[in-house]
């Protein structure tokens, strides 16, 4: 579905991604594991169009994605939750969730449908829908960022280190939510980055390791 072929990215002249190739498939959860600075975040940012490629190609269902501006990639159904949440602080939680719908000019029915879906997956968000985005805790903010990415993600969702900084109980909740998401959204392709593989054992179908900007051996997850 989403394919990276020999993707190269350089930031300020330094090669950050080297010939990265992999494929995300519908219904499959791919976990990208690597140390800090290995290129995980840059991989997601390259897919989202937030850093320019110096070489290679990214396609979504056969169509070139890397030639599209970032906002168009979102409109094609690629959702992204950055590691540091980045909510709009003066918007309420619900306004944060609805921002993509507003940006993409979804009609009222579709907006409602997606919002209901997010609330049924993440009922805690419905409870704090009126709270300002800037007044959520770290863990809550991660949930809002996940919900917001899901408002966009009709085909692919990319989560950057979702468990980073989460308390163990919240991390478990988050993992449970991901499992439910996969049941509710069977065709969705997931790409999750993580620095330690243990947390994602239960939900990973495929793991990729990345080191110094290059993808290592591809191995099925040890179920």
């Amino acid at each position: 579905m989403l394919k990276l072929r020999d993707v190269n990215v350089a930031i300020a002249g330094v090669r950050v991604l080297r010939d990265v190739s992999f494929t995300l498939r519908p219904g499959i959860c791919t976990v990208l594991i690597g140390r800090n600075g290995a290129g995980k975040t840059t991989t997601l940012r390259a897919i989202m169009g937030l850093v320019p490629l110096t070489g290679g190609a990214i396609t979504l269902e056969g169509e070139a994605l890397h030639t599209q501006p970032s906002y168009a990639r979102a409109r094609l159904g690629v959702g992204y939750a950055p590691e540091d949440r980045r909510l709009i602080s003066e918007f309420s939680v619900e306004e944060n969730l609805l921002l993509p719908a507003l940006a993409m000019k979804l009609d009222a029915a579709e907006r409602r449908r997606r919002l209901d879906e997010v609330y049924s997956l993440l009922p805690q968000l419905a409870e704090m829908r009126k709270r300002p985005g800037g007044a959520t805790s770290g863990g809550q903010g991660k949930m809002v960022a996940l919900g917001r990415a899901l408002m966009v993600a009709q085909k692919v969702v990319m989560l950057d280190e979702p468990f980073q900084g989460l308390a163990p109980a919240l991390a478990q909740d988050y993992a449970k939510t991901l499992a439910e998401l996969r049941k509710a959204h069977e065709g969705l392709a997931l790409l999750i980055t993580e620095s330690s593989p243990n947390l994602l054992d239960s939900i990973a179908d495929e793991t990729l390791s990345i080191e110094r900007g290059a993808i290592g051996a591809e191995a099925p997850a040890p179920h």
């Binding site: 990639r73 950055p82 921002l99």
Partner: peptide, 25 residues
């Protein structure tokens, strides 16, 4: 308004706004 909210979002975080489907140009 729609455009007003999109402007607020871009003011606070240009990059995330773009990744959420806002045509920042």
């Amino acid at each position: 308004t729609r455009y007003g909210k999109l402007i607020s979002a871009v003011v606070e975080d240009r990059e995330v706004s773009e990744a959420l489907g806002i045509n920042t140009r």
